[in-house]
């Protein structure tokens, strides 16, 4: 039934399976022998439950996310919809600047919707954004997402998005960030400002001064 892994992520192995005439993804969090067993078990457990829950919470806030079909807690596996499309990370190189700007504005709006619901994604990189065939934008990978988010947590979330632009799309990072923040402000209005200020502050921390 399960063949070769489809992709190997940092903390998961993903399989593609066919069930009920449709393609599903199995996201499994395997054991990591190099970590302390107690920590590893706790992480696999909490990330699996968290991802399952937060995919639903996010959808309730108006963000397209894959639907969860079942969860196997004994093998730390989630079965969810397979979203056919292209990751934003790959699209960045292929689309004209105007299209990229529009995509980033939409990403900013989706992150804004999450934050308006006091949820942070936890890993908002361009690898975790999928654009499907009809141009709909989906967010995936909610294993690090959190509820009851404070301004600090939202600031960190924006900082992580900025960091992803900086390390992966360095030649157009400024355009992408400007567009994403435009979309973010469209959703959050004036509430966006304090969070954007916090994002800038966070960047300056942790350094050797």
């Amino acid at each position: 039934m399960i063949d070769e892994p489809w992709t190997l992520g940092a903390e998961s192995v993903i399989y593609k399976i066919e069930r009920w005439g449709q393609i599903l993804l199995l996201k499994q969090r395997p054991k990591k022998p190099y970590l302390l067993q107690a920590i590893d078990a706790q992480l696999r457990q909490s990330r699996t439950s968290r991802e399952c829950k937060m995919l639903n919470v996010a959808r309730g806030l108006g963000i397209p996310t894959p639907a969860v079909h079942w969860v196997d807690r004994s093998s730390f596996t989630i079965a969810m919809d397979y979203i056919e499309g292209t990751r934003l990370r790959e699209l960045v190189q292929d689309v004209p600047p105007k299209t990229l700007e529009k995509l980033c504005v939409r990403l900013g709006r989706l992150v804004g919707l999450l934050h308006m619901g006091d949820v942070v994604h936890g890993d908002p990189t361009t690898s975790n954004v999928i654009v499907d065939r009809i141009g709909k934008m989906w967010l995936i990978d909610f294993g690090l997402a959190e509820m009851n988010a404070t301004t600090e947590m939202k600031g960190v979330d924006l900082h992580l998005m900025k960091r992803a632009f900086e390390t992966t799309h360095w030649d157009i990072q400024n355009e992408m960030l400007d567009a994403a923040l435009t979309g973010y402000k469209q959703t959050l209005g004036e509430n966006a400002n304090s969070i954007i200020v916090r994002m800038e502050e966070i960047r300056e921390r942790g350094r050797y001064h």
């Binding site: 920590i39 890993d123 960190v156 900082h159 992580l160």
Partner: peptide, 8 residues
């Protein structure tokens, strides 16, 4: 407390 945020 185990605190990982993205790659930070």
């Amino acid at each position: 407390p185990y605190s990982v945020k993205g790659m930070d």
